[in-house]
Amino acid sequence: MAKKAFKGFNKDLTCRGFQYEEGKEFETARAECCEEGFHACEYPLDCFGYYNPAQSVYHEVELDGDMDQSGSDTKICATKIKIGARLSIAGLVKAAIDFTMSRVNKEASSDERHGYASATGDYGASSATGYRGASSATGNCGASSATGNCGASSATGYRGASSATGDYGASSATGNCGASSATGYRGASSATGYRGASSATGDYGASSATGNCGASSATGNCGASSATGYRGASSVSDPTGVAVAWGHEARAKGCLGAHLILSDWRYIGEKYSDGDYKYPYRVESWELAGAKLVIVDGEKIKADTYYRCINGEIVEVDEDGEIAE
């Protein structure tokens, strides 16, 4: 019986050297988790543990044939796979909340004006649908959703999913590998954990990723995207938006007409004998050397291309933040 799942890929839709293609089906002889077969996760945010949101893309997939299950999370592998549509961070958050809601009894819900709902257990689900409602999920893999205007949603557990869909809504994911999405007008989304992903798709929305290797995206008009963690990635896809890369070795990209703010940090911490950084994740290992504001003009600064500020110069980098050759 076919099973719906989610899979992470490199930006070119490869995984461990194998080239996939959207809409195509693939088949192999044997399925054994971590050894052979096509791997995917039933819980969408489990993909973050294998593919960093700052460097990856995610697709819905359909698994079939012989299957094997991993015991550590929801990872499964199969002998057959069909690659479905690509999902944005907001899409992953919605899928994660749908996954949790469909498998547990709602621990708390509120649909009244100014109502409050809270879920504290692992895989708990919390929802607030009224005006200025507040929803919170504190357990691991919890799901929190606020759909009313001015609502607030928070997921603090490991791989939690938080969503605010109403206008002026606020969404926050503070656990590692968590995902936060704000889709309403002037919505605010924040992901503070390691490998966290934050997305703001509404006009005048604000998205922030402060954890190391986090990913932040703003797609609405006049949106703002910020990545302040080590090697974070910030992007904006509307010409009225701004992407800020303020973390150590952080990078930013934008569409034609967008603005990028790139910080320049100097490493002053200890190094190994081969020159590699010893403590790059420590704030005290860096000092701010400056910053630059640039416009994506399509000539000096290309569209949909990551840039960093290094030693006072604007440098093109690849999807991983390494200097492009």
Rank of each mutant, 00 (worst) to 15 (best):
A233H: 12
C255R: 02
F6I: 09
I301V: 14
W286H: 00
Y123T: 03
C150M: 08
G160L: 01
K82S: 13
S145E: 08
E42H: 07
V104T: 15
S234R: 07
Y279I: 04
C222D: 15
D167Q: 05
L288N: 11
S126L: 03
A146F: 02
K300G: 15
R103L: 10
N221D: 15
K80L: 07
A96I: 08
D203V: 04
A209I: 05
A289Y: 07
A137L: 01
A146M: 04
A289G: 02
E249Y: 10
V294G: 00
S162Q: 05
A54R: 04
K253L: 13
I261A: 12
A200P: 01
D274G: 09
A108D: 13
A143K: 00
A164Y: 06
S56I: 12
V93F: 06
G202K: 02
T219E: 10
A233G: 15
G65R: 06
E32Y: 04
R195A: 06
G214C: 11
Y20L: 11
I268G: 05
E62L: 15
G211P: 07
L63A: 10
S162G: 03
L87C: 02
G178K: 05
S110M: 03
K4A: 10
K80T: 08
A170E: 10
Y267W: 08
T147Q: 06
N212Y: 13
I323S: 00
G229E: 09
T100S: 02
N212P: 10
S285H: 06
V296E: 06
R103S: 09
G17K: 12
Y306S: 00
E287Q: 04
A125F: 12
R132V: 00
A252T: 10
A182K: 05
G130K: 01
L262H: 00
E42P: 06
S190I: 07
A191Y: 03
Y50A: 09
C213F: 15
K80M: 07
Y281C: 06
I76A: 05
Y50M: 09
L92A: 04
L87K: 15
D66A: 14
G321Y: 09
D274I: 13
C150R: 06
T240Q: 15
V104H: 00
A108E: 05
C77N: 04
Y123F: 14
R308G: 00
E42R: 12
R186F: 12
I81E: 11
A90F: 02
G196V: 04
Y306W: 10
D73Y: 05
A245M: 09
A128R: 03
R308F: 08
E284C: 08
G232M: 10
K292M: 13
P239N: 10
T129F: 02
G232Y: 10
